[in-house]
């Protein structure tokens, strides 16, 4: 039943798409029929081309997430636990959120050329701002009484960090990471389109140069599917888990 619920809308959509394609006799340069997309998919799979593009993109977003997490979380803690630092940086971070990573892409190209470094720099920038921001808000939302209580019981600074700050801020950190990965994935695709050094963005933008609509559509389906798989199967369960386990502190 639930499988039908998912398949039926897509089935109808594909039928609609096919009907438009053959009904209006649209040129292959604008839209291709579903079977052409399928055969293009099989060609790309068969030669291992798709695997290469996918692994480039996935490793990029993976590296960027790890780096942003490793830098952003400690920085967010430092900012969040110090009210002077928080006041100094809050407005600045908000301002940076308004400049999307892609707006720095031209500058990154001047600095690092058309390389993976450029793409990584853009994706890390996009990811790290929401992580810092959410870590900071998470830390600041912790009731001060919890910290005072532990202090009065003689807990060390480290103990307070591991027992109060970290679990207290964790749900917010996870939310920030998930948001950041969503923004980062889109920035990655956009950056790959312009940098043209592999990855799914390169696949679809490169296919455009040769008018291979079938490849573009395969790429789009893969981009969407990968995002859903990573977000729903990997990140969302972590979020639900942390929220259920430690989320109480946010209220």
């Amino acid at each position: 039943m639930s499988r039908l619920r998912v398949l039926l809308p897509f089935g109808l959509l594909i039928a609609f798409w096919w009907a438009i394609k053959s009904g209006f006799d649209i040129s292959d340069k604008l839209l291709v029929a579903p079977p052409q997309v399928w055969s293009s998919f099989r060609v790309l799979i068969g030669h291992g081309i798709l695997a290469e593009y996918v692994s480039t993109s996935l490793s990029m977003i993976g590296i960027a997430t790890l780096v942003s997490f490793a830098i952003g979380v400690p920085l967010g803690f430092a900012v969040g636990t110090n009210r002077y630092a928080a006041r100094a940086l809050e407005g600045f971070l908000r301002y940076l959120q308004g400049i999307s990573g892609i707006a720095w892409l031209p500058l990154a190209i001047l600095w690092f050329g058309f390389t993976h470094t450029t793409t990584l720099a853009i994706v890390i920038y996009t990811l790290i701002v929401p992580i810092i921001f959410n870590t900071m808000t998470g830390v600041r939302a912790i009731p001060e009484n919890y910290i005072l209580a532990l202090q009065s019981l003689g807990a060390s600074r480290l103990r307070i960090v591991t027992d109060v700050y970290f679990p207290g801020a964790l749900p917010s950190i996870v939310v920030g990471t998930r948001l950041g990965m969503g923004y980062g994935w889109r920035a990655l695709i956009a950056s790959e389109m312009l940098v043209r050094q592999g990855g799914l963005g390169d696949l679809i933008f490169g296919a455009r140069t040769f008018g291979q609509i079938d490849r573009i559509m395969v790429g789009m389906v893969i981009i969407g599917t990968l995002y859903i798989v990573v977000d729903r199967l990997l990140v969302q369960p972590v979020e639900t888990m942390t929220l259920a386990r430690w989320g109480v502190l946010r209220k």
Binding site: K29, L30, R186, I189, A190, M193, I204, F205, A207, R208, G211, I213, I216, M217, G219, M220, I223, G224
Partner: peptide, 9 residues
């Protein structure tokens, strides 16, 4: 942005 290559055509 993912639509760009298709829709530009």
């Amino acid at each position: 942005i993912v639509w760009l290559p298709l829709v530009i055509g």
